[in-house]
Write a protein that binds this DNA or RNA. Structure first.
Lengths: 225, 225
DNA sequence: TCAAAAGTGTTTGGTCTACACCCATGG
DNA sequence: CCATGGGTGTAGACCAAACACTTTTGA
């Protein structure tokens, strides 16, 4: 009986890029257009069947790279979706969520069947993928509060204002700059450099980088906790 | 390629029962003895292949009932384990964890191939099941702090001391009775009854019950959040 | 009347928040 | 020299731990 069940791995990929109108950074995610039934023509999460000798996370990483040419800065298992009615062909999907650093260049890999969308302006998605994205957004917002995954959305160095802006976009609320600074500094997740960002009509901001001595991603229960 | 991958659902089941020596309540969990290769004779988590029209949680619930004759008071997806080397036959296991209320009577369903073990005195387990149990314990302890799953380990009514004892056993540390009382009362997850537990050489303790108007288990992302 | 646990009150130390304020720069 | 954001200081609100204390029972 089990031989009729398909197993797939899909990934919700988030990146921070400017809003086309406001130029303010907002969350984007890439989708692929289905070229086969069912749900042919609808947009869906990137993913596919698990390779017979492939690890789950490796499958997610591979799909992510094939879709976006990118390597995730953060990758974590989200949930296994298995309701019998979620697809016609009885597929259980193990879903990961990822953060990538998508600059303008990497946006060039878009094609007719791969496109980046604003996270809050998604089209109708295939299967239960809309619910999956909702859940991934919920997890992202929750994790943001006690983790430093915002790091994965920025470059190697950044000002505290830039880091705060990431938090504000993800959490959808403004944060007090003074308190945010203290909060970040107290965790020690970030280290000051001797460089400064100049150019604004104001005092230059010190650049920081992440403390790479601490692991970033939660790679699941098997990698020491 | 995907057709060679097996999909199984397993469950880590926790219950609170007295320690055989001290009579103090401690965590127990039931295991089943493998009757087939590989790992024949070793103890393993209850589980089995997913039914072709069965929901993941339903499969966990079914296995749990077949093993212990019990119905879970709490059931939540834990993680999907899929390392290629975790079994010889390339099985991906979607693991749930559950809390049950196991009284002495239900312990009677033990047999040669089903036995309850102290959670901190487990034998060598088949496959990667030892790591899975470790992870489930970690999740239990984490969730305890901000949830009321302790409820699922107790009967319909209980004193605050009993509830505190559950927390203390799971978290492996003592808690201040006064602060614990305030903390629990402030959440409103528990409501006072007009009954009291008498019999000790001390002032009778008021019995409480859980507020059933609030959902208990986290049934995943698809059931409203 | 005493031991033991139930239950209450109070102090205290830390953390979070709001906001006033100074600093350094580009224009 | 002034507008702008970088960065610091600080008072009040809030919260949780510690612990002294009172209450009520069974023996």
């Amino acid at each position: 009986m089990a031989e009729s069940i398909n197993l797939a791995v899909s990934t919700v990929i988030f990146a921070l890029r400017p809003h086309p109108d406001t130029q303010h950074p907002v969350l984007w995610l890439p989708l692929v257009r289905r070229v086969r039934s069912p749900h042919k023509g609808l947009w869906a999460l990137p993913g596919g069947p698990l390779g017979s000798t492939e690890d789950l996370a490796a499958s997610a990483r591979r799909n992510l790279h094939e879709t976006t040419q990118l390597t995730p800065r953060y990758l974590e298992q989200l949930y296994a979706f298995g309701r019998p009615d979620r697809s016609d062909d009885r597929t259980v999907s193990i879903v990961y969520w990822a953060l990538v650093h998508a600059d303008v260049a990497s946006a060039g890999v878009e094609s007719d069947n791969v496109r980046w969308f604003l996270a809050d302006e998604l089209p109708k998605l295939a299967f239960d993928h809309s619910q999956i994205v909702e859940y991934a957004l919920w997890r992202l917002r929750n994790k943001m509060e006690y983790s430093r995954i915002a790091a994965a959305l920025l470059g190697e160095t950044f000002t505290l204002s830039e880091l705060r802006e990431v938090h504000e976009v993800v959490l959808e609320r403004t944060l007090d700059p003074a308190n945010f600074r203290r909060q970040i500094e107290s965790t020690g997740q970030v280290v000051a450099t001797e460089q400064f960002r100049t150019g604004g009509r104001h005092r230059p901001a010190r650049l920081y980088r992440h403390d790479h001595s601490i692991e970033l991603a939660d790679n699941g229960p098997l990698t020491g906790r």
